[in-house]
Simulated scan of single mutants.
Amino acid sequence: MKIGFIGLGAIGTPMAHNLVAAGLDVTVWNRTADKCKPLVEAGATQGDSPADCAACDVLITMLADDAALSALVEEHDLIGALGQTTVHVNMATVSIDFAKAMAEQHAAAGKTYIAAPVLGRPDIAKAGKLQIVAAGDADAIETARPAFDVMGAKVWPVGTDAYRANVIKLATNYMLMAAVETMGEAAALTASYDVEPGDFLEIVTSSVFAAPAYQGYAPAMAQRDYDNPEGFKLALGAKDVDLALAAGHANNVALPVGAAVRERLAEGMAAGEGDLDLSALAEGSRRAAHLDD
């Protein structure tokens, strides 16, 4: 199987590395060409253009947002470059409207498109333990399954409409933002009564909230060390909450918790914390509680 991989960011890079390490024939392309070098050294082929990736059996795109994939599609005629039997797997977090448009554009061109966003942080991607939520033609999902099995611990097929996978991803990230925000608020509450945040966080993440959503962010929050190049950036969290809120508004689904969390995310970005790990949300709660005065 030949796999094309476009988008070598914090999660895309370890995903691609795992495909190469598994002995699959991988062609990579990235706007910043230097990011391809470690993969080439590991055994991948560097494509001269996105079309080289699109000519493979499976094309995986893992870009930051709607705009990045839209630009790729328009500038490089990516859909036109797909082979007649190529399965385009979009594994990024995108809006529902964009997910629907992508499926429609591929169908109009007679090409195959599925959505398969991933659940997990870069360290989970590196370990090949991502949860993959896949939607689209069942046969196409099976075509991509050898790649999924290398990158993830489990594949969750959720129907034939590609956007269904994307709404599940957005809903999951929406819950994650709320979880990290409430953990930061609770840590600020206990700190105001002279309880060390690390002590509180160790207790709750080892008992009532012994789950990855909490355990993955508690250590950085306890140490107030948010400079993690492999973390989930606070600004990306804001983007995902925006997408979830837009999806809710489109179907008249109220998401009041998300609106509150979005304000905290805006505050964090205004404080210059957008490129820090999502756990930096805790700093907003500390500021509000005047804990560092």
Rank of each mutant, 00 (worst) to 15 (best):
V73R: 10
N18V: 10
S95Y: 08
A213V: 13
V195A: 06
L245F: 01
I203E: 07
A171E: 08
Y113W: 09
G43S: 09
A81D: 03
Q215Y: 00
S206G: 15
K100P: 03
N252E: 13
K239H: 03
D277G: 11
A270R: 09
K154M: 12
A92N: 09
E196M: 08
A51D: 11
D25A: 14
E75L: 02
E263Y: 01
A218L: 08
M62Q: 03
Q223L: 14
Q46T: 06
W29R: 01
C53D: 04
D194Q: 15
A144Q: 00
D149R: 13
G159Y: 02
G128F: 09
S207K: 01
P212A: 04
S206C: 03
H17S: 15
L130A: 10
L19D: 09
V40F: 02
Y193A: 13
K169H: 11
T45W: 01
T13V: 04
I132W: 00
Y217W: 05
A107N: 06
K35C: 11
G152C: 12
D139V: 12
I11R: 03
A134R: 01
Y174H: 15
Q223D: 13
S95Q: 10
L189G: 04
A280N: 07
T205N: 04
D65P: 03
D139F: 02
L201Q: 08
Q84N: 14
I124W: 01
Q223F: 02
D293Q: 12
L255C: 11
K154F: 08
K2N: 13
M183S: 04
N18K: 14
A280C: 13
E283P: 00
K111A: 06
V133M: 08
R121F: 00
D194W: 08
V257Y: 02
A288R: 15
Q46D: 04
Y174C: 10
D77W: 06
F98L: 03
S207N: 11
A238C: 05
V118Q: 03
G237V: 10
A235P: 00
A288I: 10
S207E: 01
L82Q: 04
F232H: 06
D34W: 00
L176A: 10
A21P: 04
L201K: 06
I203R: 05
K169L: 13
E142Q: 11
S70D: 15
G284Y: 06
Y113G: 01
V73Y: 00
A153V: 09
G7T: 02
P38W: 10
P219F: 09
L255P: 04
L8T: 10
T190Y: 01
Q105E: 14
E196P: 03
A16F: 08
A116S: 14
G216E: 13
V118K: 03
G23C: 11
G284Q: 15
F209M: 14
M62D: 05
V40P: 00
A289E: 05
K111L: 11
R287I: 12
R224I: 12
A71S: 14
P229N: 07
K239Q: 01
T86E: 14
I141F: 10
W156R: 01
N30P: 02
I11N: 02
P146F: 00
A244W: 06
A140I: 03
A33W: 09
V89A: 12
I203D: 01
I79Y: 06
G284N: 11
N252P: 04
D225K: 15
D77V: 13
A140R: 07
R286D: 07
G152N: 11
A55F: 05
A81V: 11
P146W: 03
A127N: 04
C36R: 10
G152Y: 05
I168R: 05
F5K: 05
T172S: 15
